[in-house]
Amino acid sequence: MKLIEIAEKLQLKNLTPEIKPDPVTDVQWGYASDLLSDVLAGASAGAVLVTIQVHMNVIAVAANVDLSAVVFASGRRPDETVIKRAVQEGIPLYGTEETTFDVAGKLYKLGLRGHRA
């Protein structure tokens, strides 16, 4: 499923509208973790990360692993400098009021799966 469809179905708030959505790539993998060293070690390239961490390290890890997007759960929102950096790095960010558990469940239902790098 394309990222843009996922965002629509989960009614995610797009925090980086400056980034053009990728019209071709299907997102296959999901990863849910708040321990960024774990994300760095375990998440696969192309995965969507669901987390409640909102600091700059998330963007650095996302760039490092080449994540396709980050979803901030439980109403967490990164500050402007973090969003700006994500735009610069081309990493789409989304926000939702739902918890990590619920977002992960919905992503699973849409066909995304866990996958350890």
Binding site: L36, S37, M56, N57, I59, A60, R85
Partner: peptide
């Protein structure tokens, strides 16, 4: 402490200090 700062050639991110700080 910026995670996008590194002294390692060929790398874009330097996470050690940023992770510790977090």
């Amino acid at each position: 402490a910026d995670p996008f700062y590194t002294t390692k050639p060929g790398k874009k991110t330097g996470l050690g200090l940023g992770f510790f700080r977090a």
